[in-house]
Amino acid sequence: MSVFNRLRNGLRLTTNQLSSLFANTVTRETGGLDGDVSGEGLVALEETLLQADIGVAATARLLEVAGSRGGTADVRSVVKAELRRLLDGTEGARPTTVRPRVVLVVGVNGTGKTTSVGKLAHLLNQAGERSVICAADTFRAAAVEQLEIWARRVGADFVRARSGTDPAAVVFDAISAGKARGRDVVLIDTAGRLHTHVNLMRELDKIRRVAGRVVSGAPHETLLVLDATVGQNGLAQGRAFLEAAGVTGVVLTKLDGTAKGGIAAAITSELGVPIRYVGVGEELDDLLPFSAEHYVEALFEPVW
């Protein structure tokens, strides 16, 4: 199955609902998608966008654009194009030739960090890159065991903490091991932490400093894992993790449900952090590289 189809399938419910809502509201209020954008039409459009968790700020911007080109333009394509522009306009981490490349995975509790590390190792594997998986969640019960199972599934190297050590120590071990064994990538899973817990956020800083000591420029990429069901708090998460951990990209998980993860658009446009991958299920190959074109297309595809 093509990436586009996979994403479409993953997003099917999301899109069906969004596009039917979209069609209904726009049709009802304006007499057709190609009709005039009356004030009422914009109100309905606002509802639709807000319901997708896109947030007040990004919604206001989209509406402004739709409104300014109202009257003649097809509202739907105007909004689509603008949404794509929002999602596309940012650059991720600078590519690096350093080996091993170090990828740090962070986020609040339960968003899908561990699972995404497993899936990402698989994705890299398929692209011919061999990785070391590092279990730096030394806090949550059975977190190491969980990740170890994923490492085994993927066939990646696995480095766990010597018991009683802190996360930075296992990060040091894992990167050193990756270096010694000539691996391409080191993927670091971290414990979930709420962005409001200052001490826990500082811990990430320590991990970063230790990583940078073993390999120059590490971590080369820091991925914030965001649950698609998250609402406006996602933006606060984005801000805090950007500041404390220098996030360079977002992984948007659980898009196989009905949630739209629209706040990611706000994160991209307000914080300039691109979405890099999307999670569409709990299996090994349920992680897809993000494409703004496909994402928006899938989101607005009228009938499936």
Binding site: Q51, T229, G231, N233, G257
Partner: peptide, 12 residues
């Protein structure tokens, strides 16, 4: 339910 959930809460 996660307190951070957005609009989807009602559906799930």
């Amino acid at each position: 339910a996660d307190a951070m959930t957005g609009q989807d809460a009602i559906k799930s």
